[in-house]
Computed example of a mutant assay.
Amino acid sequence: MHNKRILAFLSWVFVSLILVVGCNQTKTPNLSSSPASQTTNLTISAAASLKDAMDEIKPLYSKEKPNVNLTYNFGSSGTLQQQIEQGAGIDIFISAATKQIKALQQKGLLLDGTTKDLLTNQMVLIAPQNSTVVTDFKDLISSRVKKIALGEPKSVPAGQYAEQVLTSLKIADKIKSKVVYAKDVRQALNYVESGNADAGIVYLSDAKSTQKVKIVTTAPEKTHSPVVYPIAILKSSKNVDAAKGFVQFLSGNQAKNIFEKQGFTLAGS
């Protein structure tokens, strides 16, 4: 009888051990597979002039990093700066001028060591595709030119560069009454595309994005500050490693080909 009790106790211990081991083996795969299935969300605020290029880059990056979801927020650099200052949940900021980046840096909102120049661009004079009125900047003075589209210089870097060009060429005061200000450079482009403006000054990349306008001439580099697009990661980002990975991708060959096709040049190249 004593032996039977011992055997029964040993059987109970053996079965318990099997159950414990079995439970642990069932749980382990779930724990190890969980990180691989997690999705990281990155929000990128970028100057409006980058829209076409960034939209083309998105699917390429998704193939390389399927677990990273990119969300874009486009607008004028000044407006995007204000959104960040007001606490918008942004991971990466790409401005169309250094002014906005410097302002955020001074307020301690950017992650140290992540600010760099990403791209450069050019300023061009555009007109509707079928226009014969404008052949050079000096034609903007003509009475035949009624409206000239520029970005709002207080918040749109393209507008600031355009004003520099017009001032340098000594025609800013002469065409002041004709200027129609746009909320961002894409709206300035749209004014010319639709024929609501006889001419406009935009980035080369914007002019190349449509067949509805023609590039009349390129503004001499000496007439305006260098058009530089700096990039930085926000100190408040909760996905710094993923953000650094995307910034690195934007400097790689795949992104470079897209940027150059759109009219940009990688800074330093």
Rank of each mutant, 00 (worst) to 15 (best):
Q187K: 11
V179A: 02
I231R: 01
K176R: 13
K170N: 11
D206N: 15
A219I: 12
L234G: 05
L166G: 00
T167G: 02
E193D: 11
F246G: 02
S236P: 08
L189T: 13
P157E: 08
G200V: 12
Q211I: 08
I201E: 01
L250R: 11
K222L: 07
S236L: 03
L166S: 02
K178M: 05
L150Y: 10
K238F: 06
L169G: 00
S251P: 02
L166V: 01
V247R: 10
Y161T: 02
V213E: 00
N190D: 12
S155L: 13
S237N: 05
V192T: 14
V179M: 08
P157R: 11
S209C: 10
A243R: 03
A172P: 01
D198V: 02
K146M: 08
G159A: 04
V228T: 14
Y191K: 05
D173F: 03
L189G: 09
K174I: 08
V145Y: 07
D198Q: 12
S236K: 15
T167H: 13
S194N: 11
A172F: 15
S236N: 10
L169T: 00
K154L: 12
S236W: 04
Q211W: 11
V179Q: 07
I231Y: 04
L166R: 06
T210M: 05
F246N: 00
K174W: 02
G151V: 09
F246V: 08
V247L: 09
A182W: 09
D241G: 01
K146L: 07
I148Y: 07
A172S: 13
P226C: 11
V228C: 04
V213K: 05
D198A: 11
S237K: 09
I171N: 04
